[in-house]
Amino acid sequence: MASELSVMFRRRRTWAMLAALAAIPVLIAVAVRVTGAGQSGHGPAFLDRITQNGLFVVLTALVLCTPLFLPLTVGVVAGDTVAGEAGLGTLRYLLVAPAGRARLLLVKYVGAAVFCLAATASVLLAGTVAGLALFPAGPVPLLSGELVDGWTAEGRILLVGAFVCVSLLGLAAVGLFISTLTDVPVGAMAATIALAIAAQLLDALPQLDWLHPWLFSHWWLGFADLLRQPVEWTSFGNNAALQLGYVLVFGALAYGRFATKDVLS
């Protein structure tokens, strides 16, 4: 496990993706700072509040990153898990070591999950730093109207981060499964990312509303409930249950595929 993480974090690509994610809140903060307050009601959610309180930079960034940039990076990492090793040829050496197929899959999934955490943390951290550096801090108004102090607000932001991170776990499991289907990592990455986008498109079609609660992306932007007083946990719970379901189903599919697969790469 330590070895898996060290391989991932010694890779320049991993750091490039984390840096790109961190750049998004910084860009938002700088842009808002330079141009002054945006018009209320325009642009992504929370954008118009940034000038009042720097912590809104984080929320704006998460709203922007969750549908596209985070799934993009998670798709790259999750799609690469098994197919990447196969593409390099190292998969056969890991298996004759012997790493054990179930254990290898588990370690690969945990690695991808750690990346989900790192990716979310990277947006969170950069957003907090940039927000507090460029804009006033102080009491933060919640969506339900109450004002809370900065530390409580930061706690809520961490909760939102946890929500986003959990949201990505299902996608990571889907990516892991796709990754066991091919020896071409780029193909697995592209397929995973395409699925993430397709799920969101389907979620936007009202004709398919019966399907919506089963899409892994359905709750992705449902973190607003965590910004009320008292915290509304329903969406967090629903999301976590849905993601767990995806992890179990696609984890089992990945194992079913990988356990008996001929490794010919």
Partner: peptide, 15 residues
């Protein structure tokens, strides 16, 4: 992207 030594350590740790 890893050194020779790091590669061997990684493969050894796989078992």
């Amino acid at each position: 992207f890893l050194s020779g030594t790091a590669n061997l350590r990684r493969l050894d740790a796989a078992d």
